[in-house]
Design a protein around this nucleic acid. Structure first.
Lengths: 242, 242
DNA sequence: ATACTTCAGGGTACTGAGTGCCATGCACGA
DNA sequence: TCGTGCATGGCACTCAGTACCCTGAAGTAT
């Protein structure tokens, strides 16, 4: 029954393996937060309920806000590792798959995620804190993309813009699922949302100066319907023959 | 000499007109922040230097962080007003122009902006606070776009994703300018960055089911370079003649 | 077994941000 | 002159976060 979430509820790879204290703090905190609100709950309330010393709280969580997002540190590490693996995949696709790792963590414990969503939504301080968490994912994606875009023009601009798109689309799908109470299918929404950005960025329109496919072998013509065909042919030839 | 920035340094439309106290606090705060650091400066230090009572600080700024971003509240209001005006312009273009309003505020006092940038960059708490400020611009843009996208599929997804792109591109150009110390031309960078997202989102690739311009009067042909011209003509005609 | 180290945890006191409450002083109109 | 606002200052309080030190339960070597 709402045992917090036992840290990711799936992976228990060697790294962390001290269950009792940390988890006791998490579940005590959530119990109080949902009962009387985040700001109405003091650290002393939490440690009293968890039956530990006050100082210990700050040994496990750097701030009161962090206890609300207990698994993001590990999730970020997973994403970083995922993006450090060598892969032949198209970069934007790869970034979208990295975003799916975050979804997986949320989907692993829907009830916890939904309660946290409702809590976060109603507490400005938590929203701000969540922004800083999300920002780290965005930076990770952006740095990955910048690496993969080596040689392209506007690497940085591209990378940051696309990373922001991916995060925004991911969050849109995730939040719409959370708003529905965690029922219904997340992955379908997510596939749709990420497919949207992948469509838009995966293959840029004009200067497709890609590394893994030649740009020179594609010609794009845009013209008004009704243009005389000789004008179209002229235009194409003037572009090709140069 | 670094008189903070006298609030936007241009528009003094009726709304705010109490100069002394607020500005004294801003310049006192910055003086101390750059001298000994943000966290090493207490509210008491600031009010002592400004020669006002401690309680007055919190009358003008809800938190210590807010004194670093004194003009964003007004800028946000400007953006909101700008987007509330009726306009025939293409929505993404309009959103980009709205973002330029923010740039204008930064560019109005480059030395202040650069000092603030350096300060913010080095203080995690300020970075987080800035995120929450930026997020409000993003929401404003997103809500505008969602209004303009009425009737389209995926309104919300589209609006949030594009808003995030616009903000990311804007911030990329802005920060690169700030990193350069406020020298060089901002508007050129900004035009380039915003042009990039506008190109990408302004006219969606496949379903361009727009309301304010007909999709039927544009033909797009994509072909391999070297394709015999008769094949191109055939393809175009088969598409037009249907 | 004794002495030594290590380390998770508890306790206490302190700093500093942010808030509530009230007193003060100054302007305004009657 | 007397209210009636309003801006400001002065206090006292709560609470997050930190520094410092104490305890006790392990181990480990001799």
């Amino acid at each position: 029954m709402t045992e917090a979430q036992g840290r990711g509820a799936g992976v228990d790879d060697g790294a962390a393996a001290k269950p009792s204290m940390r988890d006791a703090l998490i579940s005590a905190a959530f119990e109080l937060f949902v009962e009387r609100g985040f700001e109405q709950t003091t650290i002393d309330d939490i440690v009293r309920l968890a039956g530990v010393g006050r100082r210990s709280f700050f040994r496990y969580f750097p701030s009161k806000e962090d206890v609300v997002f207990p698994d993001h540190e590990q999730c970020l590490a997973e994403m970083t590792a995922f993006l450090d693996e060598a892969s032949e995949e198209e970069p934007v696709k790869r970034a979208c798959d990295a975003a799916r790792l975050v979804l997986r963590v949320y989907a692993a414990d829907p009830s916890f995620s939904v309660r946290r969503y409702r809590l976060t939504k109603s507490v400005p301080g938590l929203r701000t804190h969540e922004l800083s968490v999300v920002r780290r994912y965005e930076r990770t994606l952006s740095e990955y993309l910048q690496r993969r875009f080596a040689g392209r023009p506007d690497r940085g601009l591209r990378a940051e813009t696309i990373a922001a798109s991916v995060v925004a689309a991911h969050n849109h799908a995730l939040r719409s699922w959370l708003r529905s109470g965690g029922r219904e299918d997340v992955t379908a929404r997510m596939d749709h949302a990420l497919g949207f950005v992948q469509e838009s960025w995966g293959r840029p329109r004009e200067e497709a100066g890609e590394g893994d496919r030649e740009p020179e072998d594609v010609v794009v013509v845009i013209t008004k319907r009704g243009t005389p065909m000789w004008r179209v042919v002229q235009e194409i030839e003037s572009c090709v023959e140069e």
